[in-house]
């Protein structure tokens, strides 16, 4: 086990100030960064929102999900469908539908014309999907590795479904070419900064809410069922609703993150939400530290920053590098970077 205590001790005096310093920097970022870099940072923060949910279920609940991409995608597609519809002249249908030979809008696209419905859908659909799915699995007392495998199958099935229904989902290419959101032009000056601040605000709210939740009796019980589900059960608790609630919250955060990501990236597609991206989401959190909310955000930012830097120069190298990083962290730093900051590697 490497000893980082000397390093940790040197930074101990500034540590309490660090979060505030970072928040201040994040707030003024729009004035300092180019619009390209700001957009990149906003995307990574959207991913950070998803990462927070993984701390809740994986770190504190012991529930490894390899299917967070599904919920990320549900949020992403909800807002993408709305933006496709909003930009459409009256009576027309999106161009990819025309190319696939469709003549009318699918019925389930219709309600997404409403901004209010879309906002609700971004939150409600992933939450409900997460709750129903996890309840179906947990109430049969399936957990651990089996659960992880089922979530992986779920993300494979979801991506396959989207690709196979090209005429209503945009297929492999996904949905792209958005021009406005809720009447505001995406290209107009100031929109980028505004959307960035909204993302930052959501990230902060999610962070504070989860911090409270993890410190509450709910958080204690979640950790208790992670460490001894049987003991908890035979103290008179039913662990299933606790785990389902945690999973639903993580799904909601993934959905909200996915919607914000789609806004910033200008695209949502199966390549962003399938099996491999879902595993990458777990890697961010493993590297940042799966027990730590701050660690997960830092992990999501750093890994994606590294990914951006490496994959633009050596596209084929990235997967190997990420794999190596993952192995390094799992074997030497089970608490990730957050463990390093706390001065305990194990």
């Amino acid at each position: 086990m490497p000893d980082f205590s000397a390093l940790t001790a040197r930074f101990a005096p500034v540590k309490p100030l660090l979060p505030w310093l970072l928040l201040a920097l994040a707030l003024v970022a729009p004035f300092a960064l180019s619009s390209y870099d700001l957009n990149l940072l906003a995307r990574f923060m959207a991913m950070g929102i998803l990462a927070l949910g993984l701390v809740l279920i994986w770190g504190h609940g012991g529930i490894l999900s390899l299917g967070q991409g599904v919920f990320f995608g549900l949020g992403g597609y909800a807002i993408a469908i709305h933006m496709k519809l909003a930009d459409l002249p009256d009576g027309e249908i999106p161009d990819f539908m025309v190319w696939s030979g469709r003549e009318s809008l699918p019925l389930w696209w219709e309600p997404f014309t409403s901004p209010l419905f879309t906002l609700a859908a971004i939150i409600v659909i992933p939450t409900l999907a997460g709750a129903l799915f996890s309840w179906a699995v947990f109430h049969r007392r399936v957990g651990g590795t089996y659960f992880a495998l089922i979530t992986q199958a779920l993300s494979l099935a979801f991506a396959t479904l989207i690709i196979s229904r090209q005429d209503v989902t945009g297929g492999f290419n996904g949905l792209t070419d958005f021009y406005s959101i809720f009447g505001v032009g995406l290209a107009s000056p100031g929109t980028g900064s505004m959307l960035y601040w909204i993302t930052l605000a959501v990230l902060c709210v999610a962070f504070i809410a989860l911090r409270w939740l993890l410190a509450s009796r709910f958080g204690i019980l979640l950790r208790a069922s992670r460490d001894g589900e049987n003991r908890v059960r035979f103290l008179g608790y039913n662990p299933t609703p606790f785990k389902v609630a945690a999973f639903a919250i993580a799904a909601m955060l993934a959905g909200v993150g996915g919607a914000l990501f789609t806004l910033h990236a200008g695209v949502v597609s199966p390549a962003l939400i399938g099996v491999v991206p879902s595993i990458e989401m777990v890697v961010w959190v493993a590297i940042g530290g799966r027990y730590s909310l701050a660690g997960a955000i830092v992990g999501a930012l750093l890994v994606n920053l590294a990914r951006d830097a490496v994959s633009s120069a050596f596209p084929e190298l990235w997967l190997y590098l990420m794999g190596a990083l993952f192995i390094f962290v799992v074997t030497l730093l089970p608490r990730g970077l957050a463990g390093l900051a706390k001065g305990k590697a194990a």
Partner: peptide
Amino acid sequence: GVLPTLSVRDNLALAARRDRRWWKSL
């Protein structure tokens, strides 16, 4: 079967809890 990452007091508080429904744990 104690819960290893919880404090001794939290272990007991969990056991002493009378209302064990999940929404009451918030």
